[in-house]
Design a protein around this nucleic acid. Structure first.
Lengths: 232, 232
DNA sequence: TGCTGTGAACAAGTTCACAGCA
DNA sequence: TGCTGTGAACTTGTTCACAGCA
């Protein structure tokens, strides 16, 4: 609902931005909706419509200038400012996330890593000492934290999310295969959204779900949206 | 397009299935569209509509029987059969995926792990010896492989995907922050879809994109779909 | 002339109201 | 009576045709 920018558009903008970075890396300075469309595997109409929600970034007859469009998309997506991130759950997955190259591009930076396990707390990961989650609240008071990544086991995800929210994060990237409830655990069942959850954004990254969708579409390929036949 | 089952419905079915497993684990044997809706954070209309695409699984006036609906959803999603999976790229992320609990639920099983790096090939991960990718084609001839997980660095993703497709996989779960092109690399630019790519399903799991979407929605919370106010 | 930007047509997906059955 | 199942209304998102400017 609301002011009407499709969430699919946001996902596509992220893709366009990545393509622009690659083009820039290859030293290509101009592109077009047709070119972007092919690289992003969408239609050129879609590219132009997506961009039009946010402004006029091209030149009629000429196309787009790579660095200009890149800068504009970074601005639109909020990637020109600093983002402080904590990770909860430094198991194999949390560690892989912390070390994944590209995450620290733009101004994302990991400022704190938290876990509960004996062998993990105190360990050094990507130049940070893993702290015990009991320190999270104090840490968040002392340091500005914008978002939290949740990489704990599924059964602990709701509690851990609650801690993040109480620590004041504005967004959660949830890797656990769980639908987070915007309310404290004890209050589960009450249909009220807990006050501390108001305005908190949750984005899910769920590979087990992806794996199951993949199984479904392998068995039912005709139900998969075909790729656009023409890129004009 | 096509026969008209929204892809969002498939994602939600995966969620419903997970909820049913949890309910079963708690010993709860009956549920309703309202209950499922609350746990899945969607509307009850949506739950009923999603299920109705595939059959009639409930009892009017009574709701759904947990084990029955669970079994039906597993059948619908294709999770009652065996799926042989290979992973390409056994870095930190690939290893985390291989070891993630829950992946081997249902009949998903990792049958082969592949990499190119010296220190990685030969290593034992989850009871499997990591092989060199040069063995992939022969491996796929000798063993039935249904899907491949792609956890290689972005710049190698397209080539690696091509190998998977040539090895005959029917689906790719792509963890690399790259839009895979359904064509061989040398042929990039030709708008023809390469023959070997016909019918191959690609599903993306892209946490860097999720992180950027999160940044956007933190700055523009009003553009985020609000949660359904009522669950009736 | 060429490619962007955009209002209008269309298609897809969601919400709803209620019919139908235990 | 209660909760599912579903056609119809509606809303959202995509496609299109073309106007508009370098």
């Amino acid at each position: 609902m609301s002011s009407g920018i499709p969430s699919a558009t946001i996902s596509r903008l992220v893709t366009y931005l990545r393509i622009l970075e690659n083009l820039e890396g290859e030293g290509i300075s101009r592109t077009s909706s047709t070119d972007l469309a092919e690289r992003a595997q969408v239609s050129a109409f879609q590219v132009r419509k997506d961009l039009a929600y946010f402004g006029r970034f091209g030149t009629r007859g000429m196309g787009y200038t790579v660095p200009v469009l890149k800068r504009e998309l970074m601005r639109v997506l909020g990637l020109t400012q600093a983002w402080n991130v904590v990770i909860l759950g430094i198991g194999r997955l949390g560690e892989a996330i912390a070390n994944y190259p590209g995450a620290s591009e733009y101004a994302f930076s990991y400022v704190g890593l938290f876990d509960v396990a004996e062998g993990v707390v105190g360990k050094e990961v990507r130049g940070l000492n893993v702290r015990h989650v009991s320190e999270l609240a104090a840490f968040a008071t002392a340091n500005h934290v914008d978002m939290g990544f949740l990489a704990v086991p599924p059964e602990k995800a709701q509690d851990a999310a609650q801690m993040l929210v109480e620590a004041g994060v504005k967004g959660i990237l949830n890797f656990a295969p769980v639908v987070l409830q915007p309310r404290a655990v004890e209050r589960h069942g009450a249909s009220e959204i807990a006050e501390e959850w108001r305005g908190v954004i949750v984005e899910n990254v769920d590979f087990l779900a992806g794996m199951k969708r993949l199984a479904f579409y392998i068995l039912n390929p005709h139900l998969r949206d075909l790729e656009p036949e023409e890129t004009a």
